[in-house]
Amino acid sequence: MIGLMAPDEGTVEVEGENFWAASLSRRDEMRRRFGMSFQEGALFDSMNVGENIAFALKRHTRMTPAEVRDRVSECLALVRLEGIEEKKPSELSGGMRRRVGFARAIALKPEILLFDEPTTGLDPITTDALARVMIRLRDRLNPTMVTITHDLKVAFAVAERVALLDAGKIQADLPPAEFEASDDPRVAAFVRGDAGEEAGDRREEVPE
C-alpha cells in the first residue's frame, strides 16, 4: 500500500524517488507530505484526542503551544467534531474515532491524503457522514486523495476516478459514472455485487 506503513517486504518508488532506498531522514521528510488515516482510526489510546492530533505538530514543527492548540481545533472543526480535545479515544464512537484519525492525518497540511478502509464496519448513516467529511476535506484542502474501500457508495461519492484492483492487477481505471456503467465482466460483477463462479477473496478498489 503506497509504502507508508512499514511494508512486510519490498521497495516502492514514489514520484520517481525510491522511497525505501532513501535515507531515514529523507524518508521522514517524504512522509511529512503524506497524511494517512487508518482502518480503525489507530489513535494513540494513551493520549487524549487533542494530543493525538497535536502529535505530529509537536514533533515536526516549531509551533508554540497556542498555535498548536489553534491548529488542533481547526482540524477538529474540519471533521465537524469541535471541542472534544480532552476526550480519550476509548470514549469515542467508531465514526468519531475515524474522524479524529482524519483530523490527525491533515494536521501537517499534507499534499497527499491516504484513507485505508475509512468506512469498514460502520452503519450506513455514519458511512454517509464520513463520506461527507471526506468530500469536505477534498474541497477545502484540495490534496491528492487515495482511498481504499469496499464501499461503492463512498467511492462514487468521493472519487474522481475509480479503479478496481483484483488478483494483484488493476482491472479498470475509470471515472465513477463510466465505472458504474462499464460492461467489463469483472467491474460489472463488482458493481452488481455478484460473486459469480470464481469468488475472489481479495477485491479492492482504488478510486482517485
Partner: peptide
C-alpha cells in the same frame, strides 16, 4: 496507456 512499474525487492 499509462504504465505503472513497481519494483519489489523481497528478502
Amino acid at each position: 496507456p499509462s504504465v505503472v512499474t513497481t519494483k519489489v525487492t523481497r528478502t
